[in-house]
């Protein structure tokens, strides 16, 4: 610890900032219990009716299930694309590596709006794909960038001697992968899957452009935000937010613990 101490100001400020970050979340969860039809302060009566109402709303639940299904596909696809590529990038000499990295990371900095519109133009050539397939393809493009980046850094930190030891003892490339690489990177792989799922699940702009008649949860919420908002939306959002927080926090804590263990060994 250094002597440059700010007394109580730094912790106090940090508490305020965390409050700012979690205020909207608290408000949504709070209003999900508000008995009034149009939520607002003060909250006089609490109810859990909105939760059952939202889960009974077939359209809303349908969009939730659509989102889960599509995000699951995008997460699996992007991880499947990212993992072999990250391994090659981290472990093998690759010609024009910086070009490949630019290609892989481009979707991160590209405004989603522009990617979405570009895909709209592209899918004019294949109008049958508009809807669920186009959304999965687009989300895979976006999440595979993050996935590749995260797995790339994991594989960079992977001890090469584990692989050499396995091969030296008679394991071929595929056996080495199955017996040594996969079990050791499995936690990172799961974390990447979870984060890719979360990202694809919540993405709105690109999905909206390519949706056709498909309705994901963010699209359903967007549509309802343009009308009078039913508290059902807040109830469902509250549920989704809590699950999202749980998933993303546990995925990241997992990665953190993993890297810490790697440092110790």
């Amino acid at each position: 610890m250094n002597r440059l101490s700010f007394g109580w100001t730094l912790p106090a400020y940090s508490v305020l900032l965390y409050a700012f970050l979690y205020l909207p979340i608290v408000v949504i969860v709070l209003f999900a219990f508000d008995a009034k039809a149009i939520p607002g302060l003060p909250i006089d009566a609490f109810t859990t009716d909105w939760f059952s109402a939202s889960l009974g709303d077939t359209r809303l639940v349908g969009s939730l299930l659509t989102s889960i299904r599509l995000a699951l596909m995008a997460a699996v696809l992007s991880t499947a694309l990212a993992m072999p590529a990250a391994m090659v990038l981290a472990w093998r000499p690759v010609r024009m590596k910086s070009l490949v990295l630019c290609l892989v990371l481009g979707p991160v900095v590209l405004p989603q709006l522009v990617l979405g519109l570009g895909l709209v133009v592209l899918f004019r050539a294949a109008p049958d794909l508009i809807g669920a397939p186009a959304i999965v393809l687009a989300h895979t493009t976006m999440t595979s960038s993050y996935a590749t980046l995260m797995l790339y850094s994991r594989f960079l930190g992977f001890r090469r001697s584990y692989i050499e030891a396995a091969m030296n003892l008679g394991a071929d490339e595929f056996t080495t992968f199955r017996e040594v690489v996969l079990p050791l990177v499995a936690p990172s792989l799961i974390a990447v899957l979870l984060l890719a799922f979360t990202d694809a699940f919540g993405e709105f702009v690109v999905a909206w452009f390519l949706a056709g008649f498909t309705e994901t949860l963010p699209i359903a919420i967007w549509t309802s935000l343009r009308q009078v908002i039913s508290p059902k939306i807040y109830a469902l959002s509250a549920l989704v937010i809590l699950v999202t927080l749980f998933v993303s926090v546990s995925a990241q804590v997992w990665i953190l613990g993993q890297s810490r263990r790697e440092c110790e060994s």
Partner: peptide, 10 residues
């Protein structure tokens, strides 16, 4: 990681 649409709704 929470959907942008939900954050904005909040």
């Amino acid at each position: 990681w929470i959907s942008i649409v939900m954050r904005v709704a909040a």
